[in-house]
């Protein structure tokens, strides 16, 4: 029988578990407690607390934050990672100082979304969506319908919607970011 070579990396023990941040930080404590008070279980607070944490920690959830939130909400860190990788709005990698979402779904596509995406990538100087630009300024994300179809094509920059966007307007908006 031929035995495929087993990469040594996989035999080695895994990297040490990440060191959890102390969560919630002071600034978020009240809001986190407020969120928890709305639900009969701690787990139910996962989505809103993670959105809050993402905002607080520079636009993404690092393994250390993930571990901190997991222990605060008394769920496993794999559960939290399961959420982070399921929902489109979370980032598990550094997300740039500005996050640009370009809608790619049918209406926006009919109204020129592909050009917008290219404009966004060119302006940011990255090749693909989902990776932070080298200067740490932008993260471009391809999003599905943002619910702004009557004013398509639509773009979000840092959580704020922009509508009827043209490539020129998008360049302007992105250039205005610092």
């Amino acid at each position: 029988m031929s035995v495929p070579p087993e990469s040594t990396a996989s035999v080695l023990p895994q990297a040490a578990p990440p060191e959890a941040v102390a969560f919630p930080p002071k600034e978020l404590k009240k809001e986190c407690e407020d969120i928890l008070s709305r639900y009969p279980t701690r787990m139910a607070a996962c989505l809103p607390v993670l959105l809050l944490a993402q905002q607080h920690y520079g636009g993404w959830i690092s393994p250390e934050v993930e571990a901190g939130v997991a222990s605060y909400l008394e769920v496993s860190d794999s559960h939290i990672r399961g959420l982070l990788t399921f929902y489109a709005m979370y980032n598990t990698k550094p997300a740039g100082r500005h996050e640009v979402w370009v809608c790619r779904t049918l209406t926006c596509w009919l109204r020129g979304a592909e050009k917008l995406r290219q404009t966004a990538l060119d302006t940011a100087g990255v090749a693909t969506c989902g990776t932070e630009s080298d200067d740490g300024k932008f993260l471009i994300k391809n999003m599905e319908c943002l619910g702004l179809c009557e004013v398509a094509p639509a773009v979000f920059i840092d959580g704020q919607p922009h509508v009827n966007v043209t490539p020129e307007k998008l360049t302007e908006l992105m250039e205005a970011c610092d």
């Binding site: 709305r38 929902y87 999003m143």
Partner: peptide, 8 residues
């Protein structure tokens, strides 16, 4: 209000 996080 419960906030979703991006999933159709």
């Amino acid at each position: 209000v419960h906030t979703g996080a991006g999933a159709y």
